[in-house]
Design a protein around this nucleic acid. Structure first.
Length: 868
RNA sequence: GGGCGGUUAGCUCAGUGGUAGAGCGGCUGGUUUACACCCAGUAGGUCGGGGGUUCGAAACCCUCACCGCCCACCA
């Protein structure tokens, strides 16, 4: 048995064990294993991403589940990989290009740009994998996958072709969300509505048939007036219904527009009249379809105005044009007013600019299996933790719209569609040299939704699909979770066609979001996201993991505080030192023998509490309450085991009776061994190190079975132990209330007649730091003796050496305190700049205090001298 | 507009019908032979407001307020 160093050094221990685990193939999943299967696929981080606290939370939970499953005897597959992250990666490379070469991707051309992306990927890709390893993640790295692996790409394309042939994927000219910065279409999910302060402009449109009379229209977007093709009122609106069928003059790019009636108009908003701009608004587009209105596209793809008829506006950025259009209208005396107005504007999730609703030719998916996807969650074939996410999920599926899957970016899976003139072919291979492939790529999520099974070969799938649990953040419940469920149900990759064999996972655990202390989301731009690698350097991976898990309540947001990580580190140190203490008293037993008849009451107590903790931990795991598991382990180990049991056990350990010592050390071994195993999923490195040093098992802790409760029966021990602890607590309290230094030796008298107490007196003396404890059922105290009453009877505190000794101690304290204060004052007064510059009154006050302190001190010293 | 979370000690959070808890921070005391990344003690809370159910509510019901999130075509 090696000696344990005085302090635990995670930086040395953690990488050592990780390397050994990898070398020994501990994380490898065996498809031929007879053990039952447990599997998780990692939510693939972006290939060029770096580790965030969110990843730490997410992957620590997965690691905990995987490691626990191994100890429970499952064959575990934790399948890792990365995502090519289409828009995200492309944006990063474009930004870099602009900064270093002042070029856009169009300057380079598609081929060269993609070469640059691959360079970028080679340079930055995979960093996050190394970081995950540093955290201790027990993924089967031999199976690492990438959404851009050749066969994965082929699978994505095949799915596209298949869905096209089923008629579920189609190409159409429809209203989509256009990102003018990235210049690509986006799905509805990639648009984030944000309240925006703007103005509501009231614009007068002259009625053609009634010259001089106007209709007033309220709009937030005067720059799109040139693309108006009608004005609309509610057909029942008494103010305006007689005007339906007449016309107005469009105030910019003057043109005759019909006044139409449509139910979609809210008579209570603004003036109750809507300008209809079918090319630039979803509602307007639908109105346009109902009334066969022409569609005028008044914007360039980059968001500039496209309207040569109004040269003042043509070519201006849309937001500049908004101001300018208002000015033009004001000049024409057609702007009545502009009042402040707050409305909700859709922003691109990626480029953070307002999206532009735009009519565009794109590829769409009509979602299959939506009803089935609802059913599997509602019927709990797939269980959500916490369950309230079921409602959010259902709400989305019930209102689902077709998914715009084509993107006008270059980094991604190419759409397998081929064109020649008016002909279109959808197939994997090019039909011939005179055919042009569709230039667009697919939404990244169109590849991610196959992740749960396309990362596995047929054999692996037979053993490990469906996966046991998915651990993810709730912000991708629609992007990923829901779509994976749909993909599983649609493509049926399972071993039989049965629904339960094809859902991608049985449980979904939604983590919380990590926020900073002010409750803000962690973000790069705010700079409020600590680098997990720094935290690992400071506190160790185990400390970070445990600290984070202890404050991560199921599914609730977490306010991050580095203090919590520090506590995780402290807990690791505590564990280390408790093991050191055990080790100092001889070698541990791998299989300690516990003879129930010879156990001390403290042993029985700690074993019973261990039993209870094991039960609580199991219950907490069943509900994915990881913070509860961590809390139970922390409380049991630090409180029950270290603070009470070890301290009480010292009586036996330092005493002469070998039988009691052996028994107590056996209990320590049992408890430590159990704690190490229970803790291993949370703190894999230190537990492995201690397991090995203590010699609890011949090999790695990773596959050791978890401890089972002994079902120890406390009998009379519990009551006795409780009484001892109560006495100790009361005695410590007495001592503190009497303001005695904790180092000062004191005597206690316990007024109690139980004869078993004699046996426990040495332990009570130790815990109370008492010189002596006398048991006397008939003790008569003189008045004024401090006393406590409780289950133990009465406890009296006697100062060894009598009251005089107590007084001596008290005086020494006060003298020391006064001396210190006096030094402070004298220090100030000897500082010339203080004496010269401070207000005279302040200096005077200090002099007074110096005099007072000196007087008091003299008196105290005199009194103290008189006692000797 | 609809939905979902949350509001408990200075801070971060536990606690789902039975005497308000932990850690940190504060204060007091401590070189007790595992650990100062520690030990002992202690102060601090009309559990967001109001109403109701109950012998009893932090917890259950109603309502309001505030914070956060999600969904939604009010220009």
């Amino acid at each position: 048995m090696a000696d344990l160093p005085k302090t635990y050094d995670p930086a040395a221990v953690e990488p050592k064990w990780y390397a050994r685990w990898e070398e020994s193939g501990s994380f490898r999943a065996d498809t031929h294993s007879p053990k039952p299967a447990f599997s998780i696929v990692i939510p693939p981080p972006n290939i060029t991403g770096i580790l965030t606290l969110g990843h730490v939370l997410n992957t620590t939970i997965q690691d905990i589940l995987a490691r626990r499953a191994r100890m429970q005897g499952f064959e575990v597959l934790w399948l890792p990989g990365t995502d090519h992250a289409g828009v995200g990666t492309q944006t990063a490379v474009e930004k870099h290009l602009r900064k270093t070469e002042n070029k856009t991707r169009h300057d380079l051309g598609r081929e060269e740009f993609l070469r640059r992306v691959l360079d970028w990927q080679d340079k930055h890709g995979g960093i996050i994998i190394q970081q995950l390893k540093r955290l201790g993640c027990s993924c089967d790295w031999s199976r690492q996958r990438y959404t851009f692996d050749d066969d994965y790409v082929r699978a994505v394309e095949t799915v596209f072709v298949e869905l096209y042939r089923k008629g579920l994927i189609y190409r159409g000219r429809r209203m989509i969300n256009w990102d003018p910065a990235a210049q690509t279409a986006l799905s509805d999910e990639e648009v984030i509505a944000q309240p925006q302060k703007g103005k509501l402009y009231y614009v007068r449109y002259e009625i053609v048939e009634e010259p001089g009379k106007h209709l007033e229209v309220a709009t937030t977007r005067p720059e799109t007036i040139m693309a108006d093709t009608a004005v609309a009122v509610h057909p029942e609106d008494p103010r305006y219904r007689h005007l339906i069928g007449k016309n107005v003059w469009r105030p910019l790019a003057r043109e005759k527009l019909p006044i139409i009636g449509d139910e979609a108009i809210d008579p209570k908003f603004g003036t109750g009249i809507l300008k209809v701009t079918p090319a630039h608004d979803k509602v307007d587009f639908e109105i346009g379809v109902r009334h066969s209105l022409p569609v005028i596209d008044g914007l360039h793809p980059d968001g500039r105005i496209n309207c040569p008829a109004v040269p003042e506006l043509d070519g201006l950025d849309r937001f500049v044009a908004r101001e300018k259009a208002a000015e033009l209208l004001a000049d024409l005396k057609l702007l009545t007013k502009a009042e402040p107005h707050e409305n909700s504007v859709g922003f691109s999730q990626r480029s953070e600019v307002p999206i532009e609703p735009r009519l565009s030719e794109q590829w769409f998916l009509r979602y299959p299996q939506t009803k089935e996807a609802l059913d599997v969650v509602r019927d709990h074939l797939i269980r959500f933790f916490p369950a309230h996410w079921e409602k959010v999920y259902a709400q989305w599926l019930e209102n689902i719209q077709d998914w715009c899957i084509s993107r006008q970016i270059w980094w991604g899976h190419r759409i397998p569609a081929w064109y020649r003139g008016d002909e279109t072919l959808v197939q994997l291979e090019s039909p011939g040299h005179d055919w042009q492939q569709d230039p667009d790529t697919l939404d990244t999520w169109f590849s991610s939704w196959l992740w749960a099974y396309e990362t596995m070969d047929a054999e692996t799938r037979r053993k490990f699909y469906p996966t046991s649990v998915l651990v993810t953040a709730p912000d991708i419940i629609f992007f990923w979770v829901a779509r994976m469920i749909i993909a599983g149900l649609e493509f049926k990759p399972g071993k039989t066609p049965a629904i339960e064999d094809n859902i991608p996972f049985r449980d979904v655990f939604f983590t919380g979001l990590i926020r900073d202390k002010q409750g803000r989301k962690m973000s790069k731009s705010l700079g409020n996201s600590p680098d997990p690698l720094d935290l690992i350097a400071k506190y160790g991976a185990d400390g970070l993991r445990f600290g984070l898990m202890r404050i991560a309540p199921s599914g609730q947001d977490i306010a991050f505080d580095e203090k919590q990580i520090e506590e995780g580190r402290n807990f690791a140190t505590k564990l280390w030192n408790a093991a050191r203490f055990r080790q100092m008293h001889g070698p541990s037993e791998a299989a300690p023998r516990l003879d129930e008849s010879s156990l001390s009451i403290y042993s029985i107590e700690v074993l019973a509490r261990l039993d209870a903790s094991i039960d609580e931990i199991k219950g907490a795991y069943d509900g994915y309450r990881f913070n509860e598991v961590a809390r139970v382990l922390y409380d049991f180990f630090w409180g029950d085991y270290c603070d009470w049991f070890v301290e009480a056990a010292k009586t036996d350990i330092f005493a002469e009776d070998p039988a009691r010592k052996v028994s107590t050390l056996a209990v320590m071994d049992h408890a430590l061994s159990a704690v190490l195993r229970l803790l291993h999923p949370f703190m894999p490195h230190i537990t492995e190190e201690l397991w090995s040093v203590m010699g609890f098992g011949a090999g790695t802790i990773q596959f050791e079975p978890l401890p089972e409760p002994l079902r120890i029966k406390p009998g009379v021990a519990w009551g006795r132990m409780r009484m001892v602890y109560d006495t100790v607590q009361a005695g410590r309290n007495l001592r503190a209330e009497s303001r005695l230094p904790s180092s000062m030796k004191v005597d206690f008298v316990l007024q109690n007649s139980a004869n078993w107490i004699a046996e426990e007196l040495p332990t009570m003396k130790r815990l109370l730091n008492a010189e002596a404890i006398t048991v006397d059922p008939h003790y008569q105290a003189t008045s004024g003796v401090p006393l406590a009453t409780g289950s133990f009877g009465k406890l009296f505190l006697l100062i060894a050496g009598g009251d005089a000794e107590a007084e001596r101690v008290r005086l020494d304290k006060e003298i020391a305190k006064l001396e210190s204060e006096l030094r402070t004052v004298e220090g100030k007064l000897s500082n010339t700049s203080f004496v010269d510059r401070a207000p005279a009154a302040v200096v005077q006050e200090h002099r007074q205090r110096k005099a007072d302190f000196s007087d008091q001190l003299a008196q105290l010293r005199q009194a103290r001298a008189a006692m000797d």
